[in-house]
């Protein structure tokens, strides 16, 4: 008992003050990319060709955050000329096309579903469905329950049963072998419900696009919120939840 108290005192209070106080991630964090529209054509072209995710539209100078894995290759080969990855973690969008960006994201609160705030603004429970990803998205979602992020202080939680949930939070490219389980989980959530596609895989198939073993999420269920990243940083998730629901 004394040990428990002693350790408790040593550990202290660790929960972040976000969003009351702003939070800045380490400058090495690769977040929202800032495309340099004045970049030379041949450099933009080279970046687009080399992009392992084929996420770059060289002509329009856009990066598709739904495909991007934030590997930073385009930044490296162009030595920053084409793009610079900022440490901005807020990147979520409610429309797929908004993820095509040169650095500015439209205001999520303007485009979100109209009923969300009224229905779920005070309390929302989500059912997480891991559908074939690499477990990084799941791990960095789970971490929201640790003391630093402490998700439950916002009235947001992850439920054990879809019957107790208001929506599903899907990660992974949706494997053929998870199709039925995903649909059954979705069906078990009572209406009205929300679908969140978190991570590059859930949005676009991610690194696994082109595999005959996966089925695009959007062909199975309607998506209300897209959270980019490979995986999304916990702060990207948290920011998305707060701006979408609150």
């Amino acid at each position: 008992m004394l040990k428990i108290l002693k350790t408790r005192i040593h550990q202290g209070y660790r929960t972040s003050q976000y969003p009351t106080k702003p939070l800045t991630l380490h400058r090495h964090f690769k977040g929202l990319p800032q495309v340099n529209t004045a970049c030379r054509d041949e450099m933009a072209q080279r970046c687009a060709e080399m992009c392992p995710q084929e996420a770059i539209d060289a002509k329009k100078r856009l990066i598709d955050l739904g495909k991007c894995v934030f590997c930073g290759l385009c930044e490296r080969i162009s030595n920053g000329e084409f793009v610079h990855f900022t440490n901005e973690f807020a990147m979520a969008a409610t429309r797929r096309e908004d993820l095509l960006t040169s650095g500015a994201m439209p205001d999520l609160t303007v485009h979100r579903r109209k009923d969300v705030q009224g229905l779920f603004g005070r309390s929302v429970q989500l059912r997480q469905v891991s559908a074939g990803g690499c477990n990084a998205c799941e791990a960095d979602t789970n971490v929201l329950n640790t003391p630093f992020f402490d998700l439950s202080r916002f009235g947001i939680g992850f439920a054990a049963s879809p019957r107790h949930a208001d929506g599903i939070h899907v990660t992974g490219p949706v494997t053929r072998n998870m199709r039925e389980a995903l649909l059954r989980t979705y069906d078990a959530v009572p209406e009205p419900k929300i679908v969140i596609a978190a991570g590059c895989c859930a949005i676009s198939g991610g690194p696994f696009r082109g595999s005959p073993e996966i089925i695009p999420l959007e062909t199975l269920v309607p998506v209300d919120l897209y959270i980019p990243g490979c995986p999304p940083h916990p702060m990207t998730n948290l920011d998305a939840f707060l701006r979408f629901f609150k």
Partner: peptide, 29 residues
């Protein structure tokens, strides 16, 4: 098998530039 997304066949069919991204998607942890 629920997470099976066909990584091995993809590794022999995609362009080499995609390999490391796929490899890091085998298990994120």
């Amino acid at each position: 098998g629920y997470q099976h997304r066909g990584v091995e066949p993809l590794l022999t069919s995609v362009p080499f530039k995609r390999l490391p991204i796929l490899i890091e998607g085998i298990a994120g942890d």
